[in-house]
């Protein structure tokens, strides 16, 4: 076999996934822009978004508070036993609050919402796709993007930052439980360090991350559901399952990648 026989095959094998990746990025970007555009075009966007805020926001509240509490408690515990070696346990409030507000709050909230609300978005829209419900909307001259995607985008833009704020507050409370109530750090020192070290820049940075993650998660999850019928690996109900798995995996990877990029700019 000559070099010229093997080269095109090898190139194609290497290039095809790259082209598919670029195609997917372009498709998702256009999908997001179309969804955002329909927020302003649809007259009933607020009524539809309220239900989605209930689903994405309210129904996720308990689990976000639970994760936030344990996350803060673990941070308090780990922080205490690290800082005690340097005689700096008084800095525990700073360590817990800055870690939560800058990093763990936005990232863990987004990952939890991907698992809880994002997967449900993909599955719901995917089922609608394979049972002709989206075609039915189009035939009734109802913009399916405006009906299905835009309310979820708007609801996520509202819910993600709010849930991130709740995660941060509950997490700081968790750090208080371990640090102050269990390990005996001075209450005033813990609270004073929070107030003195956290700036508005940190809070704004956390919110910027939450907004970016909300767009990423909702776009990926809705896009995977909306395009369930174009999957190459499966059809029907199996395609809905695979789309849901893909949505969660892609969202989580994008959250962590975007977190790195955003942190680089914000620091």
């Amino acid at each position: 076999m000559t070099q010229s026989d093997t080269s095109p095959g090898l190139l194609a094998r290497l290039g095809a996934p790259a082209l598919r990746g670029i195609d997917a990025i372009g498709s998702m970007t256009l999908f997001m822009l179309s969804g955002l555009g329909q927020i302003f075009a649809s007259g009933k966007i607020f009524a539809r978004s309220i239900r989605q805020i209930y689903v994405i926001g309210y129904q996720s509240l308990f689990v976000i508070m639970l994760i936030g509490l344990f996350c803060g408690m673990v941070l308090g515990l780990q922080g205490y036993y690290t800082l005690v070696q340097f005689g700096s346990v008084g800095l525990l409030g700073s360590a817990v609050s800055l870690t939560l507000i800058r990093e763990l709050g936005p990232v863990l909230t987004a990952i939890m919402l991907t698992g809880r609300a994002g997967s449900s978005m993909t599955a719901e829209i995917g089922v609608m796709r394979i049972t002709d419900q989206i075609d039915a909307l189009d035939v009734m001259d109802i913009n399916s993007m405006g009906y299905l995607v835009s309310p979820r985008l708007l609801a996520s833009l509202i819910s993600f930052p709010l849930l991130t704020a709740i995660f941060d507050v509950v997490g700081i409370l968790g750090g208080y439980l371990t640090g102050v109530l269990m390990l005996g750090i001075n209450e005033g020192a813990y609270l004073y360090r929070i107030a003195s070290s956290v700036t508005m820049t940190d809070v704004a940075g956390g919110f910027i991350k939450a907004v970016v993650f909300s767009l990423l998660v909702t776009t990926v999850c809705c896009h995977q559901g909306y395009n369930t019928h174009t999957r190459r690996d499966s059809v029907g109900p199996e395609a809905v399952g695979n789309a849901t798995t893909s949505a969660v995996v892609i969202s989580c990877v994008l959250i962590l990648a975007a977190d790195y990029v955003l942190t680089s700019f914000l620091l």
Binding site: M128, T131, Q133, A136
Partner: peptide
């Protein structure tokens, strides 16, 4: 808009 369509399983929104 002049068309009404009955899909195979109704395609009603769940």
């Amino acid at each position: 808009r002049q068309m009404g369509v009955l899909f195979q399983d109704g395609a009603l929104l769940g």
